[in-house]
Amino acid sequence: MGSNQLAEISHEPGKSVGIEIYPPVAGESWTIELEEFISVLNRAIRDLDSHRSE
């Protein structure tokens, strides 16, 4: 997906996991393989959960 930030995932206490998606610059679009996107999201959720339990 490169180094551009596509989204920010949060998991606040007492809330479900949320995602804020940022639009591309200058009206461009992103083409992302679905499996890769799902994999990145799942990894981010695991990372958030592991930081919450520290």
Rank of each mutant, 00 (worst) to 15 (best):
I45Y: 01
Y22E: 06
D49R: 14
L6I: 15
W30N: 08
H11N: 04
E28N: 10
I19P: 00
D47P: 00
S3C: 03
P24V: 08
I21T: 13
I19C: 13
G14C: 07
E8A: 13
K15W: 00
E35P: 02
L6D: 01
S39T: 13
I38A: 12
F37C: 14
G27Y: 09
V40H: 00
I45L: 06
M1G: 09
E28C: 11
I9T: 05
S50M: 11
H11I: 05
I45T: 12
L48F: 05
G2V: 09
E35I: 08
I38G: 04
V25I: 15
S16E: 11
I9D: 01
I32T: 04
S39Q: 12
R52E: 07
A44S: 13
V40D: 03
S29V: 14
F37I: 03
D47V: 13
R43C: 06
S16V: 02
M1Y: 04
P23G: 10
L34E: 13
V17C: 12
E36R: 08
D47T: 12
P13K: 10
R43T: 13
P23E: 14
V25D: 07
G2I: 09
L34W: 09
E35L: 07
S50G: 04
I32H: 01
L34S: 09
E20G: 02
S3I: 01
Q5C: 01
V40Q: 04
E12V: 05
Q5L: 06
L48C: 06
D49Y: 03
I21H: 03
Y22M: 12
I21N: 02
H11V: 01
P23D: 10
F37W: 10
I9C: 03
N42T: 11
E8N: 07
S10M: 09
Q5M: 07
S53W: 02
T31L: 10
P13N: 11
K15A: 10
V40A: 15
G2T: 11
E28R: 15
P23I: 09
G27K: 04
I38W: 01
R46D: 07
P23Q: 10
T31A: 12
W30Y: 15
D49M: 11
V25N: 03
E33W: 00
E8C: 08
E12Q: 14
L6Q: 01
W30L: 14
P24T: 12
R52V: 03
A7G: 11
S16H: 09
I9Y: 03
A44I: 01
L34K: 14
L34G: 06
I21A: 12
S3N: 12
S53Y: 06
P24L: 02
A26S: 11
I21K: 05
F37E: 01
G18F: 04
S29P: 01
P13A: 13
H11T: 00
Y22R: 04
E12G: 04
E36C: 00
N4Q: 10
E20N: 12
V40K: 03
I9A: 07
R52I: 14
E28Y: 09
R46S: 10
W30Q: 01
